[in-house]
Amino acid sequence: MSSPLKVLSGVLAAVLLTAQPVSAAPNPGGTAAPLAAPVRVMPLGDSITQGGSSGGYRLDLGAKLRSAGRDVDFVGSAVDGPSSMPDRDHEGHPGWTIAQVDANVVNWLRTHAPRTILLHIGTNDMYGSDPAGAPRRLSALVDKITAQAPSADVFVSTIIPIRFADATVRGYNAAIVPLLRAKAAAGKRVHVVDAYPAVPVSDLPDGIHPNAAGYAKMAAVWYDALRSVPGSIGDQPQPGGTCTAAPRVTGSWGGGFQGEVTVANPTASAITGWTVRLALPNGHAVSQVWGGTASGTGTVTVTNAPYNGALGPGASATFGFIASGSGAAAVGTATCTGS
């Protein structure tokens, strides 16, 4: 006759042998697959970045990014916006000048480690004691940012209009664009964004700060710029595609500009050809292309030339174009599909 202790021991053994861990899942590699971290984006500037109680352009930009399925985290030491706004962090400081941001930016970058930076600064310098020196101060600020965060994409915008200082604003914007493009040409990850023409004075109730419509227009400009730079918001190759396209403006003049698009194959498999769809805002049309064959206006479709369609893993190719039109030089969204 078995003792009660032996019976109990047998029951426990049976339970242990048949129990299954409820959280286990097939994992051939033996370790859990890490989740990708959100892309850290720092909205940086003055009150136009802060946006008051409305959340400024950050409200609409965040909504656009979420709708597009982008996993983005706004970062910064300040928190503002409506309580219903899912992500309220930023680095916008009302009344601040370029010099004030410059004095604090290294600490912010160390603390928050942004992958992408959206910089709109200079408005308060326009009616300060030295507006003529503002482009030089901005140049120094951008150099400090790129030195501290060389792997970050830094999007620097022209400032939006000021009703009572339009000539000063135009002069500042005209001066900073070539300075910024020179930095990009030197290999720094600096991108020019042109917000000035997007926000009319009629959208500035006090002559300086946008209303909701104006902020929505700023958000659209930022969104198009972010989408044009692969990786800045966690871009992945388009569904069904196997390549990426990164456009940039390489030169401009009255009535047109020159651009270049880098097509890359980030996959482990070779592709034999590619097709890029490139948006050209501000009414431009492609008048000449090299390194590909173009068709369409507004959104242009470019297919590879016979000599640059085959791209091995990690390889890239470029094509160039000239666009004609009276609007400001700009390129918008670019997508790529490989074959």
Results as ranks from 00 to 15, higher is better:
80 D>E: 14
87 D>E: 11
96 W>E: 06
76 G>Q: 05
73 D>G: 07
74 F>G: 03
67 S>Q: 15
74 F>D: 01
72 V>M: 07
66 R>L: 12
73 D>I: 13
94 P>V: 04
69 G>Q: 01
71 D>F: 10
88 R>N: 00
78 A>T: 13
79 V>Q: 13
70 R>L: 09
74 F>W: 08
80 D>G: 11
81 G>H: 08
82 P>G: 05
83 S>P: 13
87 D>N: 12
90 H>S: 00
69 G>W: 07
97 T>H: 03
69 G>S: 04
77 S>R: 15
94 P>K: 03
82 P>D: 03
80 D>I: 10
96 W>T: 05
93 H>N: 04
91 E>M: 10
82 P>F: 06
83 S>E: 15
94 P>T: 02
85 M>E: 09
74 F>P: 01
95 G>I: 00
76 G>S: 01
83 S>Q: 15
71 D>Y: 10
95 G>N: 02
81 G>R: 07
66 R>F: 09
85 M>R: 01
77 S>K: 14
69 G>M: 02
95 G>S: 00
95 G>A: 00
95 G>M: 01
90 H>R: 03
68 A>F: 09
85 M>L: 13
84 S>D: 11
92 G>I: 02
70 R>F: 10
73 D>Y: 15
94 P>Q: 05
87 D>T: 08
93 H>P: 01
89 D>V: 11
90 H>P: 02
70 R>E: 08
81 G>M: 06
98 I>P: 01
90 H>K: 04
88 R>Y: 03
97 T>K: 05
85 M>A: 10
87 D>S: 12
88 R>K: 06
71 D>G: 07
75 V>D: 00
69 G>P: 05
